[in-house]
Simulated assay, not measured.
Amino acid sequence: MAELDQVKLLAARYRAASDRPYLASALYSLTVVPTSRVPTMAVDRHWRCYVSPAFVEATSVPELAGVWIHELAHVLRDHHGRADRLPAADQRDRLRVNVAQDCEINDDLLADGLALPEGRVEPRTFGLATGRLFEEYLPQLPPSAVCSDCGSGAHGTPADWEITGDGPGGVSTVEADAVRRHTAEAMRAHRRNRGSLPAGWQRWAEEILEPTVDWRRVLAGAVREAVAWATGAVDYTYHRPSRRTAALRGVVLPSLRRPLPVVAIVIDTSGSMGEDDLAAALAEVTGVLREVGVGGNRVTVLACDADVHTAARVTSAQQVNLAGGGGTDMRVGIRAALALPERPGIVIVLTDGFTPWPEAPPSSRLIAALIGTDPPPPPAWIETVRIPGTADA
């Protein structure tokens, strides 16, 4: 194996860290492993960077700096962790996964003015739009799409030239998470003090610092808990006598039952609410209710602005009449829901949050499903789920 030009390689890393100081800590977390078994540079999931001496010799310092950042981006963006969640058929086609990942990275690097060697892949190589995640690019790539193997730090599959996990060097999972958060915080500070970031890096940093929560899962969990709480209140019924009745001549014993609770959905139909957002959110919420076993005639929907316009039991979102368009006071809808002939065990309020709220918790569980990008928070005692509007999704 030819001798690695350490001075040139480290000069390129120094240039990358100097030009983009928010990446410095992450760049210096990579451990260099010289090897002639990779054609260019590659990285494993333990942050070891495998470097071809011949590639270093043939490549300029500016382009080497770009490749340093390219390989770093694979592990910073947790490409290997995300690849592990792909369907098995996609995981087996690791080089095609690698191409999709390179498309995600390289459009940001080129937009940032970085020099990259010839032969790189980017979205326009395949006639694709920029600014997407690799999971979006993957199904759009032709079956023949291949690139240089960037290692298990990209596609997740260890190569035979990689050092085993317990070998020298490397970064642990906990350390990697700490480096990612530190880098995201440095990017936020850079944007605040100096200027802009490529859209992909900006999106990544925001996700690290303020991770997106799957609101459907949160709502389903809250509803499941509320259903369990409501069904925990057992009642007696003579409609189905107890099996012990047969042992007592002339006496009929009631059996225990756990009634499935009624759910009321109060929809904010004031002028500030978009009809598309309301319809989409209502369809999602009724889907969540069906998922946890609440359906049939157990759901009552109330359309409310400053007054309740409609209140009806529904079996699908298409049956709802979104009447309203005036002022906003969800307290009216909540009171109407609690006054229904069959009192609901759970009340879900779909609103943009610009409404007064009750001063004290009602006896039923109350869940506020807030629609939009920046809704004002309700009182702390109200269970809250944030639902992105159609314009944000």
Rank of each mutant, 00 (worst) to 15 (best):
I382S: 04
V347L: 11
A393Q: 14
P34C: 03
E342M: 08
F134C: 02
F55P: 07
L4Y: 08
W201T: 06
D149W: 02
T231G: 11
T328V: 07
I208D: 01
G195N: 06
L128D: 07
D84N: 11
I371G: 05
P379V: 10
R224V: 10
P53A: 05
R77M: 12
G169R: 07
Y14F: 13
V234P: 12
E284A: 15
A186V: 07
L338T: 06
P168H: 08
E225S: 13
V263Y: 01
A54V: 12
V263F: 03
L9W: 06
V234T: 15
V179Q: 07
L248H: 14
S36P: 13
A283E: 15
L95F: 03
T130A: 12
V227R: 15
E206M: 13
V292A: 06
T328K: 05
E359W: 07
S148K: 12
L219R: 07
L209H: 10
D177A: 15
R48Y: 01
V234W: 13
P87F: 04
W201E: 11
T59C: 11
G151I: 06
D177L: 14
Y238H: 14
A323F: 11
V234M: 13
D277R: 01
R203F: 04
F55Y: 15
H182G: 12
G66N: 04
T212W: 08
H182T: 14
E63T: 09
A368L: 02
D392W: 05
E210R: 15
P341H: 07
Q101V: 11
I267F: 00
R290N: 14
D329K: 00
I265K: 01
V38C: 08
S148H: 12
L4M: 10
D392I: 02
S316Y: 03
T286D: 02
V234N: 12
N98I: 01
T310E: 12
L72K: 02
G153S: 10
E359I: 06
G200N: 04
A11W: 11
G326D: 03
D19K: 15
V75D: 03
F354C: 12
L10D: 14
S144A: 13
A339M: 12
L116S: 02
Q318P: 00
D90M: 11
P378L: 00
Q140V: 05
G325D: 03
L197P: 04
A184Q: 02
P261D: 05
A317W: 07
V385M: 01
P259S: 09
L260Y: 07
L138T: 03
V320M: 06
V301Y: 00
I208S: 02
E275H: 09
W68M: 09
A184E: 01
L9C: 01
W381N: 04
V121E: 09
G169F: 08
Y22E: 13
